[in-house]
Every structure is written in C-alpha cells, then in structure tokens.
Design a protein around this nucleic acid. Sequence first.
DNA 1: CAAAGCGATAGGAAAACCCGATGATAAAGC
DNA 2: GCTTTATCATCGGGTTTTCCTATCGCTTTG
Lengths: 300, 300
Amino acid sequence: MIKQLEMLLALAKEQHFGRAAEKLGITQPSLSSGIKQLEEHLGVKLVQRGSRYGGLTPEGQRALVWARQIVGDSRRLRDEMRSVREGLSGHLRLAVIPTALTWAARLTTEFAQAHPNVSFTVLSRSSVEILELLENLDADAGLSYLDNEPLGRVNSAPLYREHFALVCRTDHPLAARDRVAWSDLGDTPLSLLTPDMQNRRILNRNFMEAGVAPQARVESGSTIVLVASVIDGGQATILPEDHARFLATGHGLSVVPIDETRGAPSVGLIAPFQDPQTPVLTALFRLAGRIATPESAVTT
Amino acid sequence: MIKQLEMLLALAKEQHFGRAAEKLGITQPSLSSGIKQLEEHLGVKLVQRGSRYGGLTPEGQRALVWARQIVGDSRRLRDEMRSVREGLSGHLRLAVIPTALTWAARLTTEFAQAHPNVSFTVLSRSSVEILELLENLDADAGLSYLDNEPLGRVNSAPLYREHFALVCRTDHPLAARDRVAWSDLGDTPLSLLTPDMQNRRILNRNFMEAGVAPQARVESGSTIVLVASVIDGGQATILPEDHARFLATGHGLSVVPIDETRGAPSVGLIAPFQDPQTPVLTALFRLAGRIATPESAVTT
DNA sequence: CAAAGCGATAGGAAAACCCGATGATAAAGC
DNA sequence: GCTTTATCATCGGGTTTTCCTATCGCTTTG
C-alpha cells in the first residue's frame, strides 16, 4: 500500500509514467499496474488516462495530500529508528535562501560536531521553492524568511535578522560613507538578486517606500555572482550585512550599512509541521534556539 | 508495510500474539513473521520476546506512535475516497459521556438526515476512556468535557454547557423548592455517577467548595440507573438539567435547578487532530457549530 | 504517412505470503 | 520433580502476488 502511494507521489511529480518508474527503480508496466491497484483499492480513478498522462483527477489531487502525509510519516519512522540504532544519524536535506548560506554552514557544522553521523545536503533555493521542496518531501528543513510571506504548515524557529548593507569597491562614490539611505541609491547601478527571490522583493519595497527605483544592471540567483560583478564591474550590490562582510573580506570592498526604515526581516529554521517530531529535527531546532541571535527572538 | 504496522497496533493492544492474530484474521505464525519483518525493515527490536509476549521495547513504543498516525491516515484516506464515490457515507464511531447521550442522539439524527448513507455507533464511556479510544483509532469522534481536564491533540467544537439540577420524587423534602444550593445537599442521600467519571469529579468539586460532602448511596456509570434508583428508592440524583428533564418526564419526578457557584462546564465534539481532515468529520463539525447553544460559544 | 513517444496488456519467472504442523521454552499444576 | 499447558518461533508446502520482458494500440510529430 505504501509502495503504491510512493508511486502516486512519483507520478505526480514526474507527470510521466516512464520517468516516474525510472525514479522508483521499477519498470513502467509495474508502475502502471501499481497505480491501477491503488485505484482499485480506493475505488476511485486517480489519474486521467488517455494514451498520455493527463494529470490527476480531483480525487487524485486529494489522495496526493494523504499520500504525502503517509509516505512522509513512514520515512520519518524509518529515520527515527535508524537514529535509535546508530545514534543521531542519517542525512538531512536543507533548502536555504542564498543570503542565509553562511548561517546554514554555521548550523550544519555545529550540528555535525555534536552528531558526527549526520550528514547534510544544502541547496540554495528561493523561499517559495523551499516551501515546495518541504511539501514534496524533497527537503527535510529549510532556512528562509519567517514573516513577510505566508508559510505553509511548518514549525519554525528564528535565527537572526537581516540588516542590509551596500557593497561596493573602495573607488565607488559611496564607498567612504558611514551610512547610506535607500533614497541615496536611486541612481546607483546595482547587481541584485532576481525578482523571484523574496530578498529582492523586500529590497524593492524598501526602495519604493523611499520613493526611488533600483537600477538593476545585473540580476542573479547567486550572491557570489553579485559580489563578483561588483569586483569586476565596479557596480554595487545590496546584501545582508553579515553575508556582505563574509563575501567582501579580502577583495578590497566597502560595506556600508543602510539606514533602516522598516523592521529587519527575520530569518529562521523551518520544517514541515509534524505531530511526532523526529529526534534529528528536534535536535536541530534545539541547536537553532541556541545559536540564534538575541535580536531574532524579539517579536516585532 | 502498512499491514505490518497494523499488526503492531493489534499486538500492542492485545498483548498476545494469538489473540492479536485472531483479531487480524490471520494465523499466529503470520503475525509472528510479520512483526519480525517489520523489525528487520526498521532495523530495531520492537517487541520484548521470551516465550511469552514481554511488552514493547522503548523503540517499539515510539514506533507505535508513528504506526497509529500512519495507519489512521491510511484508513482516513480510504474513507474519504469512499465518500467521494458514494457521497458522504460510511460509519462513524462516537464515544460519548453518559450525560451527553441525548445530545449525541440529536447530533446523529440531524446528521443522518442530511447524509442518509452515514451510520453511527454511539458508545457511552468516561471522558478518559474516550480519549483512549480516539488515540487507539477505536473511535472517530467523541462528546466530552472541553475544559477541566487536559485533552490530547484533538480538534474540538463546543456544543453546550452543563447546568446541574437535583432530580427527586415529588415526595422528597426538597421537591417543592424553586432552587437549591450545593450546601443544602450535604445530608441528602444521593445516587451519583461513579468517581472515575469526570461529571462526578465536577460534582465533588462543587460540593467541596460548598463545604459539604456528598452522601452517595448508589453509584453507577449509567444515568438511567441513577434515575431508576430515584424512582424506586426515593433518593435523589444530580444531573445536567437538560438530561434530567429528558429522563424525568413521565415519572412524576421533580427537577430542581442548583445555584451555580462556578462556570458551567462546557461539553463539545472532539476528534483526533488531523491535518487533512476527512469530509465526514468536517461536516460533523460544521453541524456541531450549527446546533450548538449560543451560550456554549462564550469563552469563560 | 511514416516514425516516435507513451501507456496498457500479456505471459511467465521469481518472490512473497500464508497456513498447518511442529519445535522450543517457560510457567503452572500435580 | 515431573508433567502439562500456554505461548511464541520455525519449517515446509502450496498459493497468491509481484515484477520483468515483450508487444500492442493509440496519439502526436515531422
């Protein structure tokens, strides 16, 4: 039964019998009959079939929700038992917004120190993609913005707040300033994250409230690209101050704090909401609570 | 895999391989190997074995929690798909505190009217037993006290509040009174619910606060026994007023309201907390919201 | 109109499952 | 102290289920 539910998940994700079967390590006919069995078992058509995959029926959509829940729980059960067997162990997949990558490193190294048998995969994704990954069981936890945009059904723990800073070469007109205001940056050519990222939307809002529009010359999903283009192209970029200092050191760049006009966005650890929480996630949340900045705990 | 989890549930409940196997409709060796398979799959010993069943290991206890979740969800998935197939249908098992039985009847008849394909089983249980039944997937929903004592992880919707009244024969010394106080009842011989029931504990608290002790001559888990013993034995009993009037009519009994000295206890519908809620339960909660007394919604 | 892509179906081999019978061990009875 | 009983594990078999390869039928594409 669980096997068939996994088939449904794979099929819904791949939208293609052949590919889904391949992912599952079975042949296409096996998948085909597996889905048919599930449909018989539930007494409902789940998949719109013609000679092509035609999407899930409404019942299929609904069954998918349950399937995620059940398959996820059964995996978590297995993981937890393995943890019992060999201490906290296993593999955690973290999906992280680009500007939180340095914090992800901090979190994972500290965790790995306490629990040497736990390994990590860290992906850099936009905040919406992170929520999707968590939904689809393709990630176990994430680092993302906690407010601003609706989270799904998740547990969360704040880690820190983002304070923005301008990053530019020392020969940049604004490089010598102690602070700058958003309104100072209306005419400055900038390298910024792509508009699908929440960081960029937050920046845009700040610009808008200052009554100016950002001049984005380079857009990228990677902060490394942004800083590199600052170094090579003589432009400027805007990043959270911590992250900026991390990337700027050793490259002869200036980091100039920007005056804050609204609450600093809060970033933290999120994981799918679960009733029985697995020990690994519990430990991760405990660690997050320990290494969070004092400021992050303040509710705005 | 789910099959094996069901085996674990049955074994944990029956504490006996033979009986558990029988409940599952399989033979004892099948159960034995099923459990062993599960243990191999999870890589952990789940059951303490000697030549007798020796209880679950700590890991087994923990796995049991997940098993309940997973098996419950898979049943709810099946039920929901059946509902899609043949409209709202199926069988709901309600566990109800004795004094709420009349409300259970109201709830079920109204629901059955709207959804003729849904049938009910209504059990009369104490509030703690109700929570156990919900935990063990042996009941789908319940009617019980909403405050006073800790509920587990449940959804709840208030239905009404209990206002106590004295029930006695018309030849009883207190029968002619308009109202009585708790302190008036210290010397009155009473028939009351057994002390394992929350209703009785609430009564005890009321008595205690009035500085008197109840004189319980007959104790029972059934309000019918209480009223019958009032009729036959000339004693008195204390019941929620609604329930009292229901049972008292036609038997020449007096129902005398008791002065309230504390907030009237709230009674409502409860069901295991679920993320995807099944349509039947959703409908039941909606109905509960419609037929609830206005007073019940007030938070004290 | 031929070719390619996609999913369903058929048939046979392999695996899993389930049962009855039996074995082993510990508690209970005499 | 020995026998009996209760209880769970194991074994050998027959049956069902599962899964794979090969192929078919339909649809889309060039």
